[in-house]
Nucleic acid binder design. Structure first.
Lengths: 225, 225
DNA sequence: TAGATTGTTAATCGATTAACAATC
DNA sequence: TAGATTGTTAATCGATTAACAATC
């Protein structure tokens, strides 16, 4: 994995600032473009894609233009070209490497899924404190002791850590990982991580929050018997 | 589980419309209030809570006032009172029942977690097509055959379904569940569900999208070697 | 050329923040 | 009462949508 440091607008591509709202829609474009590819479609207009995705054509054009003109007037977008561009933006094929901290139910479920491989993320190791797990393999990945954490991450030049360990240890382990050169956290612990350093990216996953927002809507809008 | 049907503003509580942005912050308030309770704090001001949560005090007051005046001028908010109100809004204690469709790695990991119990959601059954799983128990919950789906859901009056089955079956199974009276979906399948009926609530979980947005930030902002 | 559809600017909408009067 | 902090209105900011000129 490698990328230039803070290239503001390198020769017509890559506009200044892209809002978080736009970034969070990119993976959705990625998914829908894959569907179009599977269906064998060569081109798509913003209108067609908008209908599929239940958003407006205007938003699609606006979003894509944050990164450059990927379409062609009168024609629309070339599906595989657009897909390639989105993949590039999302770092598919950038060779991102990751470790999973915590080989519990969730950590094991994740490593056994096609989640990472599909998106070009390479899981290079799991880590756990439980001695009975250390040395075993899950989904073709070795479980190592937490004592090896720093050495392994530095030597292997790991980019990202998936945190599936108990929340009371989240902060301390994250500190160790930062010291070992890790710059991205996919955080399932429930303990929110906040760093001032803009070089450190944290993606919080709060499944419980997601469930509760559904509960809210179920209680407000529905009635039974 | 029971709630009144569309009560617009019942005696000073419950204002007209609450935006999705606000609803999605409620579970966060829930989590931080639990921390305050654990710490034994009796009262909290919007300013203190704002610092903890890395948001503005203004936003907290604005959010909470969507549901009524939970605070007291000059004092702040009573932690356990506010917590009780938030719990009520989020349906904790409303006795929501749910089934999990798909007893794969994810379905099993979820049912074995404290995810549901902590939030007052009762998992009453798992369902799977795999004959070797049917009849077994995971996390104290029985795995039943998909052939029993409709009967079970209707008889048990199930509120919600957690979809952890393969995506190509998501839509068909969701239709069966709707016909069997289910009104909420926690959808992990990756196949997005869209219904016009406002009585049907869908919460999409796209872990892959979450991972990719992290990839994006890692590739844009970071550099190595 | 005529038709289609993008790229882009302008208008609208909604959400967040600031300010302050009400009040405990 | 004086001090603190909410509830609420007004100002700001940002994101979405609409419109249309550019152009393939």
């Amino acid at each position: 994995m490698s990328s230039q440091k803070q290239t503001p607008l390198s020769s017509e591509e890559e506009k200044t600032y892209v809002s978080d709202a736009v970034i969070r829609r990119l993976p959705r474009y990625f998914r829908y473009l894959r569907i179009l590819i599977r269906e064998g479609k060569m081109r798509v207009s913003s209108g067609e894609l908008a209908d599929m995705m239940h958003i407006t054509a205007s938003q699609i054009r606006q979003d894509l233009n944050c990164f450059g003109g990927f379409g062609q007037q009168g024609y629309g977008y070339n599906v595989s070209f657009l897909y390639a561009k989105i993949c590039e933006l999302l770092g598919v094929g950038a060779g991102i490497s990751a470790v999973i901290i915590g080989a519990g139910d969730l950590g094991r479920a994740l490593v056994r899924s096609s989640m990472f491989t599909k998106r070009g993320v390479d899981i290079v190791s799991l880590f756990d404190v439980n001695p009975s797990l250390i040395g075993r393999e899950v989904g073709g990945v070795m479980i190592r002791s937490m004592t090896e954490l720093e050495n392994f991450c530095r030597q292997t030049r790991v980019d990202m850590a998936v945190l599936t360990l108990p929340k009371d240890q989240a902060e301390a382990v994250a500190e160790r990982l930062i010291a070992a050169g890790i710059r991205g956290f996919w955080n399932f612990t429930g303990k929110e991580l906040h760093y001032d350093d803009p070089e450190i990216a944290v993606e919080e996953v709060h499944l419980g929050d997601s469930l509760m927002s559904l509960n809210y809507r179920l209680c407000r809008r529905n009635s039974k018997e």
